[in-house]
């Protein structure tokens, strides 16, 4: 039923009891996976039904997430087949848009830094080191 390259529904981690709505969690996870390259263009995503069944959540919320991602151009609908990651989306939006993506994490980081009385330069150094270590 699925292409060999499709992914298991278990890939997503959904927490229904979180303050973040389920559809939002899914949208965020797909966005990050696409940005990190974990989801290559052309990869088929698990069907709405599969994800909903595995996580025991309302399929409507999964459809909502997929529809939103399609609207943003991250996913594309293929008639009769599973949704796939849209091709040719190396540029995922302007710098401002991308920065907005990590805004929650930045907020949390800044808050923690203030509580520990670290200043911006200490923080920037730590970030540079971390990112320098990776890609």
């Amino acid at each position: 039923m699925q292409a060999a390259t499709s992914l298991p529904a278990r890939l997503f981690v959904l927490q229904p009891s979180s303050g973040v709505p389920i559809y939002r969690q899914l949208v965020d996870q797909v966005q990050r996976m696409v940005a990190s390259g974990q989801l290559a263009p052309g990869t088929a995503l698990p069907s709405v039904r599969e994800v909903a069944e595995l996580h025991a959540v309302n399929p409507m919320t999964i459809s909502k997430a997929y529809a939103l991602l399609e609207g943003e151009g991250l996913l594309q609908r293929n008639r009769g087949k599973a949704m796939t990651v849209a091709a040719g989306r190396r540029n995922q939006g302007t710098l401002a848009q991308r920065l907005r993506q990590v805004e929650p994490q930045v907020e949390a980081l800044v808050l923690a830094a203030r509580q520990l009385e670290l200043d911006a330069s200490d923080l920037a150094e730590a970030i540079r080191r971390k990112m320098g270590g990776k890609s």
Binding site: P16, S17, V57, N58, T61
Partner: peptide
């Protein structure tokens, strides 16, 4: 049972 609702209800 609130956790049930969060899964199922819209």
């Amino acid at each position: 049972i609130v956790s049930d609702l969060e899964r199922v209800a819209d």
